[in-house]
Amino acid sequence: MQPPELQQRLPVVHLLVRQQRSLPDRPDPERQHRDCIDDNTNASGQDVLRHWPCSGASFSNGNQKWWISWYWGNPVLKNAATLRCLDDSNDFGLRGYDCNEPSIQNGYQRWQYLN
């Protein structure tokens, strides 16, 4: 059964990752750069969720474009290219995974906006 996703979606977001390649007690601004969370399927057909340099091309093709959607009354982050939800669990870590009710209800695919 397909989940009852709302037709009205919140704005598309770029999920940014701050990566620092210097010692934590001595940040070096020149060594910091911004990456985005990128979800795609590689040439071998494997699902790949990675942090990758933010780019207009990757955003336009949907790999770095994430919809804030609602399933079963809960907010999820859904990738525009793969249509997978951002999923985080102790067993599998952070990954793109098919949106499904048990994962959303158990909190693996449910996200909150914090100010």
Rank of each mutant, 00 (worst) to 15 (best):
D28A: 04
L49P: 05
W66L: 00
W72F: 13
M1A: 14
L6T: 12
R31Q: 15
L83H: 13
C99L: 02
Y108L: 07
P75W: 06
E101Y: 10
L10Q: 12
L83M: 13
P11G: 12
P11T: 11
K78M: 12
E30P: 00
Y113N: 11
Q32E: 08
N40V: 05
C99S: 02
L94N: 01
A81E: 10
Q105N: 07
L16N: 01
D25I: 05
A80L: 07
R9K: 12
W111C: 05
N42R: 01
N100P: 01
S55A: 04
Y113W: 09
G73Y: 02
R34P: 04
P4T: 14
I37V: 11
S89N: 05
P53G: 14
A80S: 10
A43C: 06
S58C: 10
F92A: 15
N40L: 09
Q2C: 06
R31D: 08
L6F: 10
Y113G: 11
Q19V: 07
L94K: 03
S69N: 05
G62F: 03
R95K: 08
N61Q: 06
N42F: 02
Q7R: 12
W66N: 02
W67F: 15
N115A: 14
N100L: 01
R84E: 09
Q2I: 06
R21F: 03
H51L: 07
N63F: 11
R31L: 14
R95D: 05
V76R: 03
M1C: 10
P27N: 13
G73Q: 08
S22Q: 01
R9E: 15
N74I: 07
R26N: 03
N61T: 00
S58H: 13
C36P: 08
S69Y: 03
C54D: 01
C85Y: 04
P102Y: 06
A43N: 09
S55H: 04
D35W: 15
D98P: 15
N100E: 04
E101P: 13
R95Y: 03
Q2L: 14
D39K: 05
A57Q: 14
S89M: 06
Q112S: 10
V17Y: 07
